[in-house]
């Protein structure tokens, strides 16, 4: 191979990773143009939501399951970090890891029985789980602080830096988000990802491909719970305060809407879905008041016209058109 061919070959084989890291400079310079803490606060929240939606998209979009309980994992991560740092005096990073580990365990115990269900039943079971966790957060005041929330969570530190403002948090949270996007892209392009896609179509056929359907569903459920937990920990250390309202069932529904708007089974769509639905309410006052109605309306419209979700739906249409055109020409 000539060096030029080597170069294009390298670009082609690393295209997914390169696209992700192509975003990095843009994100690096963004806070220098917009150093408004309010704006950065929103974009930081976008990053946190992207992490949850990525995990949820693997479970919903790729593996074809449904969860209306991911806000519970998000909340468990946030409260886990809060309790472990404040009450048990752990440092922020180990607390985050330990919280994720505990959430993984919860997801494993929950996933075993619950993932035998599918469709509406699975949706109801995960919804029930979310309500249980939410009720515990509200009712168990002596531990969680009850409805008024849990304050005094310490910020994260990286080496000598204390990540205590939006500007610093921006770099940390987006770096983590980019890493997770890369990991998710890798996962869906692997045998594991193809197995999940086959599982979504037909579980019996997937078993016929050698996929241990039960185990694989639990594994992807646990992974998506871990991502939600990490996002929760980041949320706690970003706002230094957590409140049960953030982790209610409507938050869970919003995450599913983000998945659907972005696109089922599209890693890039997750970025768009989380971005759009996090940013819009902040800029449109009308959105704030009628948030739930508008979210519902968006969901219905997308499911009616692009049931695969926005990005995936449009990409599918383009790809199919192109292929049909070639078929006619051939």
């Amino acid at each position: 191979m000539t060096s030029r061919e080597k170069f294009t070959y390298f670009i082609f084989h690393h295209r997914a990773g390169l696209t992700v890291w192509g975003l990095a400079p843009a994100l690096l310079f963004f806070p220098f143009y917009y150093d408004n803490p309010y704006i950065l606060g929103i974009t930081n929240l976008v990053a946190i939501n992207v992490i949850i939606v990525l995990g949820l998209n693997l479970f919903v979009g790729y593996a074809g399951q449904i969860s209306l309980g991911h806000a519970a994992f998000f909340g468990l991560g946030a409260y886990g970090s809060a309790l472990l740092t404040v009450d048990y005096g752990l440092r922020a990073w180990p607390a985050m890891g330990l919280a994720a580990l505990l959430v993984a365990l919860v997801a494993l115990l929950l996933g075993g029985p619950v993932l035998r269900l599918s469709g509406h039943y699975l949706a109801m079971a995960t919804l029930g789980f979310n309500i249980v966790i939410f009720t515990i957060m509200v009712q168990w005041d002596e531990v969680t602080g009850g409805p008024s929330g849990f304050a005094g969570i310490p910020p994260l530190t990286v080496g000598p830096w204390i990540i205590d403002d939006e500007f610093r948090f921006h770099f940390l949270v987006w770096a983590i988000t980019l890493i997770i996007i890369t990991l998710c892209l890798n996962l869906v392009r692997s045998g594991v990802g193809r197995g999940l896609a086959a599982l979504a179509v037909d579980e019996r056929a997937a078993a016929g491909l050698g996929i241990d359907v039960k185990k694989e569903k639990v594994k992807i459920f646990v992974l998506s719970a871990i991502l939600a937990s990490l996002a929760g920990s980041l949320y706690a250390h970003c706002f230094l305060f957590v409140n049960p309202d953030t982790f209610g069932i409507f938050a869970s529904v919003d995450f599913v809407i983000m998945v659907v708007v972005g696109g089922m089974g599209s890693v890039w769509g997750s970025l768009l879905g989380a971005g759009l639905l996090t940013i819009l309410p902040e800029f449109l006052d009308i959105f704030e008041t009628y948030k739930d109605i508008i979210h519902g309306l968006i969901l219905v419209l997308i499911l009616l016209f692009l049931p695969q979700g926005f990005v995936t739906g449009i990409l599918d249409i383009i790809r199919t058109r192109l292929a049909l055109k070639r078929r006619q020409n051939a």
Partner: peptide, 19 residues
């Protein structure tokens, strides 16, 4: 067609994610 090679591709999530 690659789905037919799921067994050969391995089952480790971690290996798949790190690529």
């Amino acid at each position: 067609v690659l789905c037919g090679l799921t067994v050969q591709a391995g089952r480790s999530f971690i290996k798949a994610m790190l690529r």
